[in-house]
Design a binder for these strands. Structure first.
Lengths: 131, 131
DNA sequence: GATACTAGTTTCCAAATGTATACCGATATA
DNA sequence: TATATCGGTATACATTTGGAAACTAGTATC
């Protein structure tokens, strides 16, 4: 078992924080993770799929305001990142089922962490002034 | 000590995933956390401040491509969320120092988690095909 | 023949976001 | 007097994002 590399607060590794240096590069994976979860619909779609396989129209009906264009786009992104799987059945009319992959389910602990921090933040900030 | 509430995968709590139900509401804190870290510059600015107090122009010089307008906007957001503090000194010309608050530093473990997942994702997906 | 169902795509448009550039007042330096 | 410094702001523009609506093919139903 290797120790988790600390990417911030390590002054021995990044004492002067040079602009184009190693430290900025270390942020790329963080950005990746953020990008994957970012957007108005991503989380809701992922959440919907955690409760089982879903068909296209079914997801559309579940999430109010979601348009087919956006759903199509978001599902493609999930597919590209191997977080969701697309299964086509040649019924009439055609049936398409989406499901989270095992890999997609590894997002869960991360979402939990975001939830934990976000919930505290709601209590601290939003609860008292914002909006 | 109370047990952390599970927001997904709990079929007893959210068996049918009704559209406007409690489950969607549970995603709001997650969105909050994502929003705070989102953007091209936020992480870089936070990272910069983890290495100590910084002045406006200093941050600008450190992060290539960053414009004063964006930096100003991002710093204001950090301030509003009480993640960063703005200190004005009446020197000539005026000196303004920004620093992470203790609360701002609580983001660190979250960023670590994002980094952990993102690094694995890089190896799995980006390393072999994307971009 | 008109309508509805499936899973999307296409087109157009509005709003949000981000960038480039110039500028501000006050002061110190060359 | 010209220039540079500080911490920003103002304006104009380009790019990105997202939404509304109509439309596709193939078949089944009314």
């Amino acid at each position: 078992m290797e120790t988790q590399e600390s990417i911030i607060h390590d002054k021995r590794k990044c004492p002067t924080h040079l602009s184009a240096g190693e430290c900025t590069k270390a942020l790329l994976p963080v950005q990746d993770a953020l990008d994957i979860l970012h957007g108005k619909w991503k989380l809701q779609i992922i959440l919907s799929l955690t409760f089982g396989k879903k068909r296209f129209k079914q997801i559309l009906r579940e999430i109010p305001g979601l348009t087919p264009k956006m759903l199509s786009k978001e599902l493609k992104e999930l597919e590209i990142n191997e977080l969701a799987l697309r299964n086509v059945f040649d019924t009439l009319p055609v049936t398409v089922e989406y499901e989270l992959t095992a890999y997609g389910k590894t997002l869960q602990p991360l979402i939990q962490e975001l939830h934990k921090w976000g919930a505290k933040h709601r209590k601290k900030i939003i609860g008292r002034s914002k909006k």
